[in-house]
Design a binder for these strands. Structure first.
Lengths: 232, 232
DNA sequence: CGATCAGTTGAAAGTCCTCAACACAGGTGG
DNA sequence: CCACCTGTGTTGAGGACTTTCAACTGATCG
């Protein structure tokens, strides 16, 4: 059962798109599966980059910590997405930390195996180029947001993005389907948890969102999007 | 003469490292060379991504413009570096604009050619992964700076980076070897030209830098680095 | 030599952060 | 079962940092 799910996940990733069933089977044999509880670490910033991971189920948070201990969230990684891209590039060390934010299952693939696959199957190497280029573009967009938008718009954009990636339709609106605290949002938008709290309170007063302890529901996505695209 | 220089540049890029002399010769034949004067555009945000460029000489500025016309500088690109990475990933459109900031020479390579080379020579595709991953890491670092540091430290980091990439030793200190205005620095650090001007004036008063019309010289790199790494 | 571009600086205003105090939920252990 | 402890969230007050607005200076270029 799980074996099948695993293969499904692998062939549904952008990275392995187009790889032959035979190669996928071989890959699956050399991959390791790991179950994670909430808060379990996958790898740490500064670890040797020996293995990267495909998320089969659940969600990881990828963070970087500065010399003086401040943390920023680079990204959340969901099913069929990758964590540990440094391994694809052959870098020595993981530049970031990955942690499960929900019960998760990941498939680990070693540097040796993926490098060999890329060397033998150029289409996989070219997929890797596309995957990393997509992340690069994402990062450019966030940099642009950080450079040009005020805090409120950045929070709005961030919540809308998360709702798109990990939203669950409910009676009350679109619920972000993993625990998300004020502090988390602050680390994604370059602000403080206090400012996030004030902003969400204001939105709650206007009926745009409904939020509480590590929980955010977007009640009026369209109005929130208007706010995100307004000047300022 | 130029032919030789051109081949030198191509085989000195990280992208084509390890490619055989024969393939390099073939590549050189299908590449186009273009001379650019200061301010000449190379490609525009939104253009079809048909060609990417290796800088043979000079320097390009890569920017993104927001819907409301604000500009941010993604990066400066110097000799042996690439502009137009979207082409490598097979994306449809250039997400950014590249412009010469000095008299330059670039070598253009079409999407069809590079995709074919990557398909035939997996080592080039893997090089491409490394090149883009390095850019991704750079972008992560800048995002972290934007998220956690005040304006003064961001400007300090930015100037030190430019001095490292494009610095020229002079009697007075390390001079950034291309025209760089207050506005440019503002677009790299997410602030305004006024704040950059005030900051540089203060530094000038302390003898850290020497700057003027589109010109920055770092007089005391070490002290500037201390400032860049201090808290705040 | 006039027009334009780049830079400087003061004053006022605004955004956002810091500090502080409190509220509330959920789990733990007595 | 309840008291406590910790993690999370809220909100006020004050202040720091940065922007905005404005006026001015000097350099560059046709």
């Amino acid at each position: 059962m799980h074996g099948t799910a695993e293969q499904d996940i692998l062939c549904r990733t952008d990275l392995f798109r187009g790889l032959s069933p035979d190669s996928l089977r071989a890959l699956r044999r050399s991959a390791t599966r790991r179950r994670l509880a909430t808060q379990d670490p996958v790898f740490h910033q500064g670890d040797r980059a020996e293995t990267f991971y495909v998320v089969a189920e659940g969600r990881l948070r990828v963070t970087q910590t500065t010399a003086d201990g401040q943390q920023v969230i680079i990204r959340y990684v969901g099913p069929a997405e990758l964590a540990g891209l440094a391994v694809l590039a052959g870098d020595d060390l993981h530049p970031s930390t990955a942690t499960a934010v929900a019960d998760s299952e990941v498939i680990g693939i070693s540097r040796a195996v993926i490098r060999e696959i890329m060397a033998r199957h150029p289409e996989v190497a070219m997929n890797a180029v596309s995957v990393i280029a997509a992340r690069y573009r994402e990062m450019q967009q966030r940099l642009r947001e950080m450079s040009t938008q005020n805090v409120e718009r950045r929070i709005a954009h961030t919540i809308l993005r998360l709702a798109r990636e990990a939203g669950r339709r409910t009676a009350r609106g679109i619920e972000i389907a993993f625990p998300l605290s004020r502090q988390d949002l602050a680390e994604m938008t370059g602000t403080t948890l206090h400012t996030v709290s004030r902003t969400l309170s204001a939105w709650e007063g206007r009926g745009l969102v409904d939020s509480g302890r590590r929980r955010v529901v977007v009640r009026r996505p369209h109005e929130l999007a208007m706010l995100a695209d307004a000047a300022g």
